[in-house]
Computed example of a mutant assay.
Amino acid sequence: MTAPFSRYVALGDSFTEGVGDVLPDGRIRGWADFVALGLQASAGEPIGYANLAIRGRKLGPIIAEQLEPALALNPDLLTFNGGGNDIMRPRVAIGWVVDETVKLVHRALEQPGLHVVVLAGANPSRHLPMGALMQKRGDQLADAVLTALKPTPVTLVDNWADETLADIRYWSVDKLHLNALGHARVASNVLTALGVAVPEEWGVEEVAAAGSGSRSRNTSAYYREFVLPWIGRRVTGRSSGDGREAKRPTLLPVD
């Protein structure tokens, strides 16, 4: 069987890096890794996969640091998600995020033989402090980006509108990043949009059919462990990705 794609590169921030899906040996997995596994299973032969995403990156640095190195790898499939860290800042220009995303897509489409997938991130807003503001901004961003890109030959995956993903069962303890179940569902959404079979052993549909989890409470311990450190980084101009490099900067066979 011929692989639909044989050289896959992922761009983005913590969502694409896979933060929240931690393997027993401490490695970070995530939905892009699942997508690569699904593509390889469909192909029945090894494919190359690189992941240039770094947690904490706003859209500007994603474009400046990741786009051209990704294109230099000559992929035939590129996935992109960005802007989530921008909408979490006190001030954000949604129009600028949309315009820069469209520019990135058009630059990528200049690459012969490259198919581009643009994802809206999953929606954590119902579980977070000040979630209403994130919901409003996320709605605006997802709608504007997907609308702007509809005339282009890209595959659009709207995880933000996936109500199943909003359930607390799909989120890690920090409630901002997906857990393994959430990342597997996002990968399922991507593979389905590409017309690639989702491996049955992932159990994505069985998990979704199992019913919703109870709504969680944000305790004082949660604020101490997750919210206050996040505020501290914002105040001091630091990022969780400072000093980090991409976990998979070159095309390697899927493990």
Results as ranks from 00 to 15, higher is better:
1 M>N: 12
4 P>G: 03
11 L>C: 09
15 F>M: 07
15 F>C: 02
19 V>P: 03
19 V>A: 05
25 D>Q: 11
31 W>D: 01
33 D>S: 05
33 D>F: 05
35 V>C: 03
36 A>K: 02
36 A>W: 00
40 Q>H: 00
42 S>M: 06
43 A>F: 00
51 N>I: 02
59 L>R: 07
62 I>W: 02
63 I>E: 09
64 A>H: 13
67 L>W: 05
67 L>C: 05
70 A>V: 06
72 A>P: 07
72 A>Q: 08
75 P>G: 02
78 L>W: 06
79 T>M: 01
83 G>D: 08
84 G>R: 05
92 V>L: 11
95 G>Y: 11
95 G>R: 13
96 W>S: 14
97 V>D: 06
99 D>R: 13
99 D>G: 08
102 V>A: 10
102 V>S: 12
105 V>C: 13
107 R>D: 09
110 E>P: 04
111 Q>M: 08
111 Q>T: 09
114 L>R: 01
120 A>N: 02
121 G>E: 14
123 N>Y: 09
125 S>Y: 07
127 H>Q: 10
139 D>M: 07
147 T>P: 07
151 P>S: 11
153 P>M: 02
156 L>E: 03
157 V>R: 01
160 W>G: 00
162 D>K: 04
166 A>G: 12
168 I>G: 10
168 I>E: 15
169 R>Y: 11
169 R>S: 12
170 Y>T: 02
175 K>M: 12
182 G>K: 02
185 R>S: 03
188 S>D: 12
188 S>Q: 03
189 N>A: 09
191 L>G: 00
193 A>G: 07
201 E>P: 03
207 V>I: 13
210 A>L: 08
212 S>L: 15
215 R>P: 14
224 R>E: 08
225 E>G: 08
230 W>V: 11
232 G>I: 12
233 R>E: 11
236 T>I: 05
241 G>V: 14
242 D>K: 09
243 G>K: 12
249 P>D: 09
249 P>Y: 10
251 L>F: 10
254 V>I: 01
